[in-house]
């Protein structure tokens, strides 16, 4: 299924302001960027093993650098407002990593907050970019 069709409804595209391919690139980059926090935490956990700490820190820098390069291309294809509406998805990814990788506790408040954020993103991206 093409990305165009995946984001389309019967009444036309759900996301009308941005080309679906750039919407996907935006979300892939936000997903990858959220992993930089995992690297930072892993670096912090590495203890006195210098090599591991440097490796995780290096990976974090690599992710941030790659994100910065892609981000500049993303901003060419959408308004800053549209991009900023999608940024909070990182909160949900962070929650996912904290549970899956670090086995931290996820409270009901966190889950409810994430659902409200997701609803907000869904409403925000459905805006057609006009007043």
């Amino acid at each position: 299924m093409s990305s165009d069709r995946a984001l389309s409804g019967r009444g036309g595209r759900f996301i009308r302001e941005v080309e679906p391919v750039w919407f996907l690139i935006l979300h892939i980059s936000l997903f990858v960027y959220s992993l930089s926090g995992v690297c930072a935490k892993m670096a912090g956990r590495a203890g006195n093993t210098g090599t591991q700490r440097i490796l995780w820190f290096g990976l974090e820098l690599l992710i941030i650098g790659a994100y910065a390069i892609v981000w500049q291309q993303i901003l060419k294809h959408m308004t800053l407002t549209f991009a900023s509406v999608n940024m909070p998805v990182a909160v949900i990814y962070r929650l996912l990593w904290s549970r899956l990788i670090f086995h931290e506790t996820v409270t009901p408040k966190m889950l409810i907050g994430s659902i409200i954020i997701l609803i907000g993103i869904t409403i925000g991206v459905s805006d057609n970019g006009k007043n």
Binding site: V85, P88, V91, G113, S114, I115, I116, I117, L118, I119, G120, I121, T122, I123, G124, V125, S126, D127
Partner: peptide
Amino acid sequence: GMLFIFAG
């Protein structure tokens, strides 16, 4: 959407 995100 932004109000929801802020509240969330």
